[in-house]
Simulated scan of single mutants.
Amino acid sequence: MESPQERRERRRREKRQVIRRVAVRMALDGGPEAATVEAISAAADISPRTFFNYFASKDEALVMEPVWQSEELMELLQARPDDEPVFQSLKAVSKELGVRKRPVWEEMQPFIELHNRHPELSAKARAIGQSKVMEQTLDIVRRQPGIKSGLHARLLVIGSFGAMISAIQESLDTGEPVEELLDEAFTLLEHGL
């Protein structure tokens, strides 16, 4: 059962998502310039003052939050056996995250479309948190046995994230089970494509 604080936090997250969806839909329909704080607020049935309780700016409302939370990723990586090869650890973590995050990616399609139309928004999105997740993941991977260099660690992490994202996108496009596509993606990666 949710505590009052958990319920407030959940409701806050839900309201934030409603406002964000309204902002993205408005920007898709009329361009980012049409998505003013006032217009977003009116469409979301809130005041501009309330808008600023959830977002610091309209730009923040137009970028998707990072799909992976660094805490979740770090917890999964650190739970892997110490003697497990790094590639196998990244494969297991990526598979678990891929299954968990596929529904989130489905909800992100309007953001992806918006960012494809307006690439300037993508730079802002990357600055919001993906680099933090990448750096924390690299920090853990660099310290694992068998890692030959910083480049080796970086290629493993980027390859794993790429395999996971590709499998999720393919699942969304084709309807194939993400678990099977994740297995195929990592097999391809492991065998040098």
Score class of each variant (00 low, 15 high):
Arg25Trp: 04
Lys58Arg: 14
Pro32Phe: 04
Arg102Tyr: 07
Lys95Met: 14
Met64Cys: 06
Ile40Arg: 03
Asp29Ser: 15
Pro119Glu: 03
Met26Leu: 15
Leu73Tyr: 04
Gln88Cys: 08
Ala92His: 10
Ala56Cys: 04
Gln130Glu: 10
Gln130Val: 07
Gly129Ser: 04
Glu9Arg: 15
Ile112Phe: 14
Arg7Ser: 06
Gly31Tyr: 04
Val141Pro: 03
Ala43Leu: 15
Met74Gln: 06
Trp105Lys: 09
Ser94Ala: 15
Asp59Gly: 14
Asp139Gly: 08
Arg12Asp: 00
Arg142Lys: 15
Val104Gln: 12
Arg25Ile: 01
Arg126Leu: 10
Asn116Ile: 07
His115Glu: 08
Val93Met: 08
Glu84His: 08
Ala35Ser: 07
Phe87Tyr: 13
Glu60Asp: 12
Tyr54Ala: 06
Glu14Asn: 06
Pro85Met: 12
Val22Asn: 01
His118Ile: 07
Lys91His: 11
Ile46Gln: 05
Leu77His: 01
Glu75Ala: 14
Val22Ser: 01
Arg13Asn: 04
Asp59Ile: 03
Asp83Gly: 14
Leu28Trp: 01
Met64His: 12
Leu62Arg: 04
Met108Phe: 07
Ser122Lys: 14
Glu113Trp: 02
Pro103Ile: 13
Thr137Lys: 00
Leu138Ser: 02
Ser41Pro: 11
Arg25Ser: 14
Ile40Phe: 04
Arg80Pro: 06
Ala123Gly: 08
Arg10Tyr: 05
Lys132Thr: 11
Ile147Gly: 06
Glu71His: 09
Arg16Asn: 03
Ile46Cys: 11
Arg102Phe: 06
Phe55Cys: 05
